[in-house]
Design a protein around this nucleic acid. Sequence first.
DNA 1: GGAAGAAATATAACATGCTATCTATCATGA
DNA 2: TCATGATAGATAGCATGTTATATTTCTTCC
Lengths: 323, 323
Amino acid sequence: MADILADMGYLFLGSRLKRLAERLQADAARLLKTSDLPIQPAQFPLLAAIDRYGPLTIGDAVEALGVSQPAVTRTASSLLDIGLLAASRDDADMRQKTLALTDAGKALMARARAVLWPPLGTVVTDLCGDLSGPLLDQIGQLETKLDHCSMEMRVNTATLAARHAATGLSIREYSDDLAEDFYRINAEWIEQMFVLEENDRQILSHPRELIIDRGGIILFVEDAELGVVGTCALIRIDEGSFELTKMGVSEKARGRKAGEFLLASILERARAMAMDRLYLLTNSKCASAIHLYEKLGFVHDAEIMAAYGSRYERCNVAMSNPL
Amino acid sequence: MADILADMGYLFLGSRLKRLAERLQADAARLLKTSDLPIQPAQFPLLAAIDRYGPLTIGDAVEALGVSQPAVTRTASSLLDIGLLAASRDDADMRQKTLALTDAGKALMARARAVLWPPLGTVVTDLCGDLSGPLLDQIGQLETKLDHCSMEMRVNTATLAARHAATGLSIREYSDDLAEDFYRINAEWIEQMFVLEENDRQILSHPRELIIDRGGIILFVEDAELGVVGTCALIRIDEGSFELTKMGVSEKARGRKAGEFLLASILERARAMAMDRLYLLTNSKCASAIHLYEKLGFVHDAEIMAAYGSRYERCNVAMSNPL
DNA sequence: GGAAGAAATATAACATGCTATCTATCATGA
DNA sequence: TCATGATAGATAGCATGTTATATTTCTTCC
């Protein structure tokens, strides 16, 4: 089914912008919730305006926000109710009401500036920086990008990345010049704990053909000094089923949460792909890995074990992620 | 007071898009009303989708519109209520509901295609065609344009223009190569009925300096065969007051509503400029002009007469427009 | 100094988007 | 064949935008 709003072009520009805006706002609402900033997205601009310009009357805020006066009045009321704003009547003019941030309001804005704005700003700037051409084209491109990976996921990933950047770690996408690293890192731990099965060798030797080209993903974690120190793959098994596999972190880089960073990153990507099922197969000897899987939401799954357990000799544990 | 949404750039992109979208939708609502299309702007995409793709189930429509299922269900219900859509349950699957246009719905869409889409499409395409650069810049440019003249006004003007285009008339903005026409057309009628005062001569000789550069407007009406046959100006007297003046149509072009077209066009522009007061000064000898002024909303105004009546020798009638 | 109009907010009513959840029907598998 | 889960749509409830209008307070002018 085609998209009528895109089909009609400029004629339905208003509806299309609204749809895009709602989508961004819905993501913003979820981000505010996960960042533990207990406000609604529409309340943010008013707080930001007062934070930036100092105390404002309702009328000032109407101008600063560019929305209707009743909208500002309602937003202000709700912020007064939850104690983020305080109102004072001016002696000079008892009609006016001056809104100022309370300490709680200041604290909230400080937190927002610290934890939400940096990743959000980066993500939106990057997202829009790539766009080009006429307005409608840019909107179409933006919609396509968001279809592929929502704003929320992008911000979560960026947040995670920022947290680890401080420790010198960063995530890289697959490219052919990383194929060797993919082999090396996995061969290292597999040979140490088990034996390389033919199945392993095939996949490790042909990552582009057997993983990427079939709709899978490979990510790497790179240390600023040590280079590429970890990798992990999602292989598409059938239409909506993916297997998380070939996850390894070099011994020299252990103990720095590189594995957690990698796994969390690939899970973000997985969630953005609307897959039905994500599972993994491993062995009870890999206790620390299993602990990590559990930490990030995987649960033991007998059904998966029964269905796929025979694919590797070494497999005796199966887990799935509810996504 | 600055605009916080613009100030914060990409960070508040969602809110900014929403504001812009609401603005366009509000204008669309007014246009639907004035075009006597008794529906809400959000109902339009559903009708258009069915009109274009044929009968749809609710589920199909969800895909086509790209909004949530409850939104589609509600829109469909309201359109069923007012008789523009008809629903039928499919024998094959009693859960599904197929929506089709009724005769009334088809008639409405036909009318919309005939009277609303052409001017709306033209206006939005023109408006967005001029935009360039990154997304935020284009949004800013679009906002500025709409501040200057709303979507609704632009469409009304375009509609008017289309109606007159059929008779070979079109409106042109001031440009320096039309300065001669401005002088010629006004000198013609003034000299015929009165005498050219020094005041007139100044203004007619320096339209850019004395009108355009001071925030005023000059429009011309052009005939496909006869060339420029009429003109009219709005002069800014002070901050919010404008005087409509120097309106004339060549004798050879009378009787073709060129004057009405011109005056209606400049009034559209005037309304878009949020002026406090718009008045004109004329003489009771100009009976047909006064009739036209009255037709388009001007009323006799003694207060204006008292305040400004002495500016021209020939003035004995003052009128103002409530805008 | 008091009435009238203007200005700053508040309130009401409605349009529309969303998420979450309910209901009715269909499809599937023991 | 019937329970069970999936699917299509309906409903409830909220967020947030709008316009129209009411209320309170100020300003201005006779």
